[in-house]
Simulated scan of single mutants.
Amino acid sequence: MFKLRYKWYRLTHWEFWPMWAVYLPCIFYYFWISLKSRSFGFFKAVNPAIVHGGMTLEDKHFVNQLLPQRYRAKSFLVTSGTTHDAVENIIKENELNYPVILKPNNGCRGRNVELIRTREKGKRYLRDYGNEDLLLEEYIDFPNEIGVFYIRFPHEKKGFISGIVEKKGIMVTGDGRQTLKELVKYNLRYHAFYSEIFLDGQHNGNYIPNENEQLLVSSIGNHARGATFYDASDKISSKLTELFNEICSSVKGFHYGRFDVKFNTWEELENGENFKIIELNGAASEPTFIYDPGHSYFFAIKEIMKHWDYMYTIAKLNKQRGHHFTNIEECWKILKEFNPFLTS
């Protein structure tokens, strides 16, 4: 009975649909703006500072370096085949402490992003995923995480925030009867992540939380890894916009994308205090506030198209300034590398 309810829940909540199903209606609009720009690769001119504007699986290490260190989490490139001892030396030499984050240097939608709490888990991670370039990142222990979508037209000195998503990890509430495992396993939203959560033995699945006791079992702020996204665009303010205008003023060639940010309080964030940028994404960025459970599928489609229109306008203006579009051969290569119709 639960399996039937679970399948129905996933079917009737569009935020869990495959990526191709979400984006299918938008493809026709992409063809339209490509015709207007006379190129399927107009996105290259959106962010000249980033390879292909950030439409492909960009080099996260390179993009991180575009940001001044005072704004971002410390991060270090771990090339394919690097030994565990070498990674330990990076941690020690740069005065990092466990836990740390390890993730692919080229990746999206939370693929293989892991919170590494111990040396042993780091060793296992390298054994399983060390055959590609990785990014080692300090863990930022602020309680709040958001994605800030920032846009600036090339002929304007200041930009604007088009939306904010607030990310909440997997949290369950006890009833005094069910074990932690049962609370996750029989939760319609979290059921898909049940085996992953208890894989490393970090949580005692047999623990019975008290009634109304809340437990955070995963802090990874990615929708594909179980996080719930909420539209926090009502938090957009002049002070917050000025902060991101200040940050982006130091990043020449960046006009469009999403900053993933961890911070302590909203008030401190507006004042430019106690926050760190943990990732910057370019042209491939989604306006992820669309995944708020309260938003309809049609709202999402409208916002995706609106943001693609911003992207088209920026690319057109940047082309007038001498920047180039991606040619058809490169577009085909990107499509094969990052194809939403092959992504579940």
Rank of each mutant, 00 (worst) to 15 (best):
N105I: 04
R127C: 10
N47Y: 05
I27H: 14
A49N: 05
P48R: 03
V100Q: 01
Y9F: 15
F28D: 07
R38A: 08
L24G: 01
D128Y: 12
K44Y: 05
T82R: 08
A21R: 06
E95K: 08
R72A: 07
G81I: 04
V46K: 03
T83M: 07
D128V: 13
R111T: 12
T56S: 05
D85G: 08
L67T: 05
V22S: 04
D59A: 08
S37V: 07
K121V: 10
L77S: 11
V63Q: 05
L24D: 09
N94P: 05
R111P: 01
Y125V: 12
P25F: 07
F76V: 02
N94C: 00
R72I: 02
R70Q: 05
N89Y: 08
A73S: 14
S39T: 05
L24T: 15
N64H: 12
H52W: 03
K92L: 03
H13V: 09
W14F: 14
V63N: 02
E88K: 09
S34I: 02
M55P: 02
L102K: 02
C108V: 10
A73M: 04
C108A: 15
N97K: 14
L115G: 08
R111Y: 13
H84W: 13
K74D: 04
E15L: 14
L115Y: 13
I101G: 04
G53H: 00
D85Q: 09
I101M: 11
L11Y: 15
G81H: 05
Q69H: 02
K92R: 13
A21C: 14
K92Q: 11
N106S: 10
I116E: 03
